[in-house]
């Protein structure tokens, strides 16, 4: 498995060339395992801000977040790939998606000690440190996401002709659109409604990410109008 993951990180082209030569089931299991390990490290690092049971909860939630989002998006992602002219089988689409996702999760896992340090050492409860940690996690997420997109692009190109750029944009949009709501459902990540441990599905299912963003935007605009 370590050879597969090393090949994925160092030489994505070679990784995909090997992948298309033989049945991909074993390779997919390896990618899944690598991705889950990376995501768990990242989850534990985020949970360490609050500590206690929250570490274990986010450790479990992070791989679930990535995999549930992939499960929901996969049919549309496969269709997007086909209509962009990349003629892939379902198993090939899964391999490409898992390769991108694993790369992203491994990058997040590699950054988790840094995030973990900041999370453990940030003052609590403090709104300022909470927001700073969010910005740090967002930046790490962008770096990891770009690395994942790079591997996705190589994977799509390895299948031959087609409008890879368009397919890549569609994949990124679909995964982000669903991922944002999934993250909302599985919240909290960094904080934990100070004093309340654990996770509540009822709390997760209340509201909607995009409506929440809209409400915050409207509040800002109103406050800016009042200031003006």
């Amino acid at each position: 498995m370590s050879v597969q993951l090393a090949r994925l990180l160092y030489q994505p082209e070679l990784h995909f060339r090997f992948a298309w030569r033989k049945p991909v089931a074993r390779l997919n299991c390896g990618l899944l395992a690598g991705g889950v390990a990376g995501a768990m490290c990242w989850g534990a690092a985020m949970g360490s801000h609050v500590g206690r049971a929250h570490v274990w909860i986010t450790l479990v939630k992070m791989p679930l977040f990535l995999l549930f989002t992939l499960a929901l998006c996969f049919p549309l992602m496969h269709i997007a790939l086909l209509v962009s002219g990349v003629n892939a089988r379902v198993s090939q689409t899964l391999t490409i998606a898992l390769s991108g996702l694993s790369t992203m999760a491994i990058c997040l896992g590699a950054l988790s000690p840094v995030v973990g340090l900041f999370c453990v050492s940030a003052p609590i409860p403090s709104m300022a440190s909470y927001l700073n940690l969010y910005v740090l996690c967002f930046c790490c997420g962008v770096v990891a996401g770009l690395s994942g997109l790079r591997v996705l692009s190589r994977g799509m190109k390895s299948l031959g002709q087609g409008r890879v750029g368009r397919a890549l944009l569609l994949w990124a949009f679909i995964y982000q659109f669903v991922g944002a709501q999934m993250a909302w459902v599985l919240r909290p990540w960094i904080g934990s409604s100070y004093g309340v441990d654990g996770y509540s599905l009822a709390h997760g299912l209340s509201g909607n990410f995009y409506m929440g963003v809209w409400a915050v935007l409207m509040r800002w605009l109103k406050e800016m109008g009042a200031m003006a």
Binding site: A71, L72, L76, Q181
Partner: peptide
């Protein structure tokens, strides 16, 4: 459909 279903069940 899976995405629409997910938003339907997870939105109040």
């Amino acid at each position: 459909a899976p995405i629409a279903w997910f938003f339907s069940v997870s939105t109040s």
